[in-house]
Structures are given as C-alpha cells and as structure tokens.
Design a binder for these strands. Structure first.
Length: 110
DNA sequence: CCCGTGACGACAT
DNA sequence: TATGTCGCCACGG
C-alpha cells in the first residue's frame, strides 16, 4: 500500500455518505478539487475492494442518478443494497435523486 | 516508454 | 431537449 492518494481521499468521502443517501462521482471529484477527474473517482471505486473498511460504493452513482456501477457489482445487487437502505431505485435509476443526493461540498461545508 | 481503456462530466452543436 | 465530442488522470499491457 503506497502513500495516501486520491483513492483514500475518495474512500473517506464515500464512507461519510449516510444510509439512504447517494452522491455522484463529479461531486466527490469536485470536493477533492479535481472537478474534471470524475473518472478517477470511479476508477478508485474499482480498487475500493482493497480498502479497509470497505467502501459503500453502491451509494455512489453518476450525475443522473443512474446506477452505472451496477454493471460492476453484478446483477441488481447494487439496487438491492440501495433499496435496503431506503433508496428507491427504478430501472437502474435512483428515484427522488435530488432528495437523496448527498453533496459533500454542502453537507461537509466547513 | 507509448497506447488504449475507463464506475464521468461539462460544453458545443 | 438530445446527441456528439473533448477533457481528465491513473493503471494495465
């Protein structure tokens, strides 16, 4: 395990996501100061399996609230996990996304 | 060392 | 509003 990098930063933020809430890759990237590096956030998620404690990557969706990561979770596992936490998911899309959206730049402001 | 790929996002048309 | 294109940066081959 190398030095602390962007990945751990992402993991920290993702771990701060309360149940029943979701956030977007761009929001995290922006919060970290790397607005355009939204892809890196997702890439970090892929390696999150090596993180400890595990990262609730299922709470991270794209800007549209679409479960883009479900493809990587396999099946509807991601949707099931979200619904289990109270997040309504329909057609791989988070319902009331605007309500359940958890923006670190706002929730963690200061 | 160079190239392609990728859990995204913003802007241009 | 919808579709297309570019940018962004890390990692694998």
């Amino acid at each position: 395990m190398p030095d602390l990098n962007f990945y751990d930063m992402v993991y920290q933020v993702v771990r701060l996501i309360p149940q029943g809430r979701v956030t977007s890759y761009g929001a995290i990237a922006s919060y970290l100061g790397t607005r355009g590096s939204s892809r890196m956030v997702g890439y970090a998620m892929q390696a999150c399996g090596n993180a400890n404690p595990p990262v609730p990557a299922h709470r991270v969706v794209n800007r549209q609230g679409l479960l883009t990561a479900k493809f990587h979770f396999g099946g509807d596992l991601m949707a099931q996990l979200l619904e289990s936490e109270g997040v309504k998911v329909k057609d791989d899309q988070v319902q009331n996304f605007k309500k359940v959206f958890w923006d670190p730049a706002i929730e963690l402001e200061l």
